[in-house]
């Protein structure tokens, strides 16, 4: 059954995401990164977004290639030689480091995709319009204009192809030149429209005084639970990190205790528990209601 993850407060999600981002950026322990990976998989699969796992790879592929190549070329340390090419040694260590960095990149991609799934745009708009009404209005107007401008451009392109403009001309210069009339018309008429939009907002009393909020978002019990847990996670992580038990430097030597130690295991388990926590909090009873 598909779960609905749109029930959390925007701030809860933002806070958790930044915590995860800090861990991804600053952590070298493969175990912890795997924990985060598992957490993402759980979320994607349980809310029916398994396709996103694949899509993430698609976005990731070009960056992955660059990451791998550059890192392989420039990381020269290491003792276990794999092969020699262009007068350079390629070591197992450099391969592992490159993979780790690429893996982090993938995790960051997933993090953004997960935010897209979990943030309910309607609730986000409610929240932001209560805190930042002007920016929210500006974003909303832009968001509304975008598709209609795009359609208008398509129509204009048709009209000007009838008027004899050649949009498939030779060379970049000609092609850009073909857009002279339609870009000018679009800019002019959209700016004309801007005055109407401004007037409509004015007449509707925007910025006329103290605002109230429709559908005010409340920071509920589940939000407190998740936020506190995420806070605990970062504290524990920092503790082990500072105590040095998470330092993972592959060039010093590959050693099992570097992979798996008390710190790494603790944070790993905490990440799994975060996934479990989210699952419990979003569990619906038979009536489709949330337990918390």
């Amino acid at each position: 059954m598909k779960r609905n993850y749109n029930i959390f407060h925007v701030l809860t999600l933002a806070f958790t995401s930044i915590i995860l981002m800090i861990i991804i950026f600053s952590c070298e322990s493969p175990l912890i990164l795997t924990g985060i990976f598992i957490y993402f998989l759980v979320v994607f699969i349980t809310c029916g977004h398994s396709k996103d796992i694949k899509d993430g790879f698609k976005y990731f592929a070009p960056f992955f290639a660059v990451t791998l190549i550059i890192n392989m070329i420039f990381v020269t340390d290491g003792t276990i030689m794999l092969f020699k090419a262009f007068g350079k040694d390629f070591t197992l260590e450099s391969l592992i480091v490159s993979f780790m960095l690429s893996f982090k990149l993938l995790l960051i991609m997933y993090l953004f995709m997960m935010m897209g799934i979990m943030i309910d745009s309607d609730r986000a708009v409610s929240f932001f319009s209560s805190k930042m009404p002007k920016s929210t209005l500006m974003m909303m107007v832009t968001f509304k204009l975008f598709p209609s401008m795009k359609n208008r451009l398509v129509t204009l392109k048709q009209i000007y192809s009838i008027r004899g403009v050649d949009f498939e001309g030779k060379g970049m210069r000609e092609r850009i030149k073909a857009f002279i009339p339609i870009l000018s018309i679009l800019l002019e008429s959209s700016l004309d429209g801007a005055f109407d939009i401004g007037e409509a907002a004015y007449v509707k009393g925007f910025l006329s005084g103290k605002r109230t909020v429709y559908d005010r978002q409340t920071f509920g019990r589940k939000d407190y639970i998740v936020t506190l847990y995420a806070f605990l996670l970062i504290v524990v992580y920092l503790f082990f990190r500072i105590s040095g038990s998470l330092n993972f430097d592959i060039y010093i030597g590959i050693d099992v205790s570097k992979f798996i130690n008390l710190g790494a295991i603790t944070v790993f388990i905490m990440l799994l528990m975060l996934a479990a926590l989210i699952l419990i909090l979003t569990e619906e009873n038979e009536d489709g209601l949330h337990r918390y």
Partner: peptide, 17 residues
């Protein structure tokens, strides 16, 4: 000015407090 119908209707009400 808003994205959803109900939000559009609420917009004016929010503004006039």
């Amino acid at each position: 000015l808003m994205n959803k119908v109900h939000r559009e209707i609420a917009f004016g009400l929010e503004n006039i407090g």
